[in-house]
Write a protein that binds this DNA or RNA. Structure first.
Lengths: 259, 259
DNA sequence: CGCCGTCTTGACGAATCTCAAATAAAGTGG
DNA sequence: CCACTTTATTTGAGATTCGTCAAGACGGCG
C-alpha cells in the first residue's frame, strides 16, 4: 500500500530540485497581500506594524497552487524556504532509511511548513497536499535578513519554530503514554479545536486522511482506527460516515484523553 | 514511584520563579569564555568570528552549577533564556495535565536546553540534572538582539531550533513505528554515537537514567527495558552490569533498528 | 549491617496486531 | 453515465507483544 502511494507521486531524484523550484516560480495570478489575508492572525504576519508587513509581503510568493497529492518538498530535498498554508491541508511524512513511513502531522491554513530543513539545509520530511491547496512561499534567506531588521518578524519566526517543538512534544507524549482509544480521542479533539479556531465547525468535519494515515500518525494500524471509530459511534460519542465525522459528545472525548 | 520522585524535588509553586532566577544569578567562580571552551564545535558558538564570539561571551553567564536532581527550569515556569550544557547531563520531562510524566530527552554537553519556552514565554517541560552538572545560561532577549547584529549567531540559533525539531521527529518515528526491541537498540546506538562525537567511548558508558526513565523515554515499562537488556546480553550484543553498559555488537544493534 | 530504591525474573492477561474476507467507495476508460 | 477496476473501510478470529502483578535479588548509603 505504501509502495503504491509512493508510485503515484514518484519522480526521478534528479528532477526534484527542479520541481521544487518550479513550484516556487509558479506565477501568482492574484497578488493577495499579507495585510489583507484572512490568516494574518495565525500566520507569520501576526502583530506586524505596517512597514514590517510591507517588507514581509515583498519576500513572500503568494498563493502558489498545490494540487491534491502533490508534494511541496521532499525528504532529502534542498531547503529554500518556509511555506505558509493559505488554503487546504497537508500531511507531513517522515521516511526512515528502510522505507518505513510515519505521518508526522496534519496541517491547516495559517500553519508554517518546512522548518525541519533549516538546520541541515535539507528537508527531513515531505509535505503532501491532502486536497487542492494554496501556500505562500517565503524565501528563508530573505526572511533571515528581514528578521535582522524587523524585531517583530524575528519574534514571529522564533515563536513559530518553538511552537513546532512544543507541538511535536505533545505528539511524543501521546505516542509514549496513551492507549489507542486515548490517542484517537486526542486526535479528534485536536482537529475539532483547530477547526474551531479557524472559524469552522468544531463538531462536524471531513477527515482528509485515510484510516491508514490516521493510524500512521497515531502509531496504530488502520484496523484499530476503524474499530475504534465504530466503537465510539456505538457508544454515541460521534457519528462516522466514511470520512465525515460528527462529534456528538466532545466532553466525554476530552475526558477520555485525560484518562 | 513517580510520586516519590516528585516529592524529592517538589517546591511550592510560588517559589519557582525565584528559584529559576537564583540559578541564573549564581556567581561563576571561573569565567570560561566560549572562545576557549572545548565545546565550541558543538555549541551556540560554532563558526563565529572573533568579534561575534566576544559579543556572545558578554551575554552568557558561564558555568552555572546544577547539582544532581536539581531542576534547571520547570513546566509552566517563566522562560528567560536558553541553557548550554557544559558538563554533565540532563533529562527533559513532559508533564500532562493529569500528572502523567514522559521523558522527552536525555541531553549531553554542548546541547541547548529550554527552546520550548520561546513561543509561549513559559516552559512546557522541565529539565533535571542527572548528575552534578554545569550549564551556561544565555538570556534570550540579549540573544535575539545579538542575532540581529551578527548573522552567524542568528544562523546558529535557527540551526539549534530546527535541529531540535528534527531530533523530536526521530523520537516520534521511534515511538510510532518501532517494536520495543528496536526502540531499545535505537536508544543505545544513539547514545553510543553521541558519546563518540564528544570524544568518549562509543562502546562502553554509564546510563545516567533508571530503567524506568529509559522506559518512559521509549514508551515502555521498566520491566520491558530490563528484560530486553537481559536478552541482548544473552544474545551477546552487549554486557550490562547495573548502569554500566558495554556494547559488544554495534553492527547487529544497528541492523535491529533498521528492521 | 540493614534499609530503601532499583533491578531482575516469572506467570498471566489485556491490548493491539496480523491475516483474511466481505463490503463500500472512489476513480477510470469506454 | 455505466461497467469495471482499484482503493478504502469494516469486521472477525487468532496470534503476539507488551503490560501487570508479584516476589525476590542486588547494591549503595547511612
Amino acid at each position: 500500500m505504501e509502495a503504491v502511494a509512493a508510485l503515484k507521486t514518484a519522480r526521478p531524484v534528479s528532477v526534484l530540485p527542479f520541481r521544487a523550484r518550479s513550484v516556487l516560480r509558479d506565477v501568482s495570478r492574484r497578488a493577495p497581500a499579507c495585510s489583507t489575508c484572512k490568516l494574518r492572525g495565525v500566520c507569520m504576519s501576526v502583530g506586524l506594524e505596517a512597514d514590517a508587513m510591507t517588507d514581509l509581503e515583498e519576500i513572500v510568493t503568494p498563493a502558489v497552487r498545490v494540487a491534491k497529492g502533490e508534494t511541496l518538498y521532499r525528504s532529502g530535498g534542498r531547503f529554500t524556504g518556509l511555506y505558509a498554508i493559505r488554503l487546504g491541508s497537508f500531511k507531513t511524512v517522515l521516511l526512515a532509511d528502510d522505507g518505513q513511513e510515519q505521518v508526522a502531522g496534519y496541517h491547516m491554513p495559517g500553519e508554517i511548513l518546512g522548518a525541519d530543513g533549516i538546520g541541515a539545509g535539507l528537508h527531513d520530511s515531505e509535505a503532501v497536499a491532502l486536497e487542492d491547496s494554496e501556500v505562500c512561499a517565503i524565501s528563508f534567506d530573505s526572511l533571515q535578513e528581514l528578521a535582522r531588521e524587523q524585531q517583530a518578524v524575528q519574534q514571529n519566526l522564533h515563536r513559530i519554530l518553538s511552537r513546532e517543538i512544543v507541538r511535536e512534544r505533545k505528539i511524543m507524549m501521546m505516542l509514549g503514554t496513551m492507549s489507542a482509544e486515548q490517542r484517537l480521542a486526542a486526535f479528534l479533539v485536536d482537529l475539532s479545536e483547530r477547526y474551531r479556531v479557524r472559524g469552522y465547525s468544531s463538531s462536524e468535519f471531513v477527515l482528509r486522511m485515510t484510516r491508514e494515515e490516521i493510524g500512521s500518525y497515531l502509531g496504530l494500524k488502520l484496523e484499530t482506527v476503524s474499530r475504534l471509530l465504530s466503537r465510539f459511534q456505538r457508544e454515541g460519542l460521534l457519528q462516522v460516515q466514511g470520512r465525515v465525522v460528527k462529534l456528538l459528545d466532545l466532553t466525554t472525548l476530552r475526558q477520555l484523553v485525560e484518562h
